[in-house]
């Protein structure tokens, strides 16, 4: 595992709904500075639950998540499209601004350097043309960029993405992967996906989660481990992820 100092460490996390259905069992996972970690696994395998435990949105039944020199305020979060209501009456501009909601003060009724920061994100993600459209009117790829803009507006140290490629076309996927690569020069990235083709050669670590953690790191056992997780062989090379490429980065 190459990369910087430890930022987050999940230790022996277990989680269940109503104490019955076990979703996660004894999962440990580190996130380092400038890491590019992809958490893979089948649908319903507990990826999102793991991410929510790491973010502090869910409390695990047992185990701990430790932050080393970072706080949840330094997290950027791009949730799944399905977690929020696209019909909500809000303009792209105001939507991006909500990324600074923790700086909001009811009596001052304004956020410091609001316009400057929002404008910067709008330019960065080429959202100028649709800044004053409602989010119900924009395309999946545009919404994805707006979500990224909202997550990045406070210059987070870690960016978390939950299934970012599900509802976007292949061109937007290419753009997303380029954006993430560039971001990874300065910040850590943790991305959840069930889509093996979403992984490109800049990914530094891969974790496979299906109730428990099957693999973490970058070695040749990835394919075997994915097979275990998905329950069938996964043709990684066909999807553009030869472990040979991962190896070259060593």
């Amino acid at each position: 595992m190459k990369s910087g100092s430890l930022l987050i460490k999940a230790e022996n996390l277990s989680f269940s709904y109503n104490g019955k259905q076990s979703i996660l069992h004894d999962v440990s996972l580190p996130v380092c500075d400038k890491d590019y970690l992809v958490i893979m696994g089948p649908n319903g395998g507990g990826k999102t639950t793991l991410l929510k435990c790491i973010l502090g949105l869910l409390k695990p039944d047992s185990g701990k998540v430790r932050y080393y020199g970072v706080s949840s305020r330094e997290f950027g979060y791009v949730p799944q499209f399905t977690t929020f209501d696209r019909q909500m009456p809000i303009r792209v501009y105001d939507f991006i601004e909500t990324g600074m909601i923790n700086r909001y003060h009811p009596l001052k009724n304004r956020i410091p350097d609001r316009t400057g920061r929002v404008d910067k994100q709008i330019e960065r993600f080429s959202l100028d043309g649709i800044a004053f459209s409602a989010i119900s009117e924009i395309s999946g790829g545009q919404l994805q960029r707006a979500l990224l803009a909202r997550a990045l507006i406070q210059d987070p140290r870690i960016l978390f993405l939950d299934e970012p490629t599900t509802f976007i076309d292949s061109e937007s996927r290419g753009n997303l992967s380029a954006i993430l690569r560039e971001l990874n020069q300065t910040i850590a990235i943790v991305m959840i996906t069930h889509d093996t083709s979403a992984i490109d050669d800049h990914v530094k670590n891969i974790a496979c989660v299906n109730r428990t953690l099957y693999y973490h790191g970058r070695d040749e056992h990835l394919e075997e481990s994915l097979e275990k997780v998905y329950g069938c062989p996964i043709e990684l090379i066909g999807h553009g992820l030869p472990h040979r490429v991962l190896k070259e980065h060593e």
Binding site: G56, L57, R73, Y77, F84, D85, I90, N102, R150
Partner: peptide
């Protein structure tokens, strides 16, 4: 709009 995002931001 987005309860989880709200929660994450305190």
């Amino acid at each position: 709009f987005d309860k989880e995002f709200a929660q994450l931001h305190g």
